[in-house]
Amino acid sequence: MAVNVSIPTILRTHTGGEKSVEASGKTVLEVIDDIEAKHGGLKDRLVKDEKLHRFVNVYVNDEDVRFAGGLDAEVKDGDTVTILPAVAGGAR
């Protein structure tokens, strides 16, 4: 099960500067674990207490996985997984 994973600028230090990497897995968590095995350090930036970090968005194709099972969201062969840090902030 090969998927293409798009890596945001801030996390490319963990992928040797690569904008996207190949990974495998049947769920988002398996894909993240597979990337972690090849490029250590990435998982900590995405997952906290076995949940996706509140200010990191992960999409399978066009769907935000937060609305599709979170880390258990299903991934199929040929899917594109996109990781994007939220753009957020505030006065407080």
């Binding site: 968005n57 066009d62 939220a86």
Partner: peptide, 12 residues
């Protein structure tokens, strides 16, 4: 008035 966040679909 005290927080902003891009909508997740818009962000993608």
């Amino acid at each position: 008035p005290t927080f902003y966040e891009f909508d997740s679909a818009d962000l993608l």
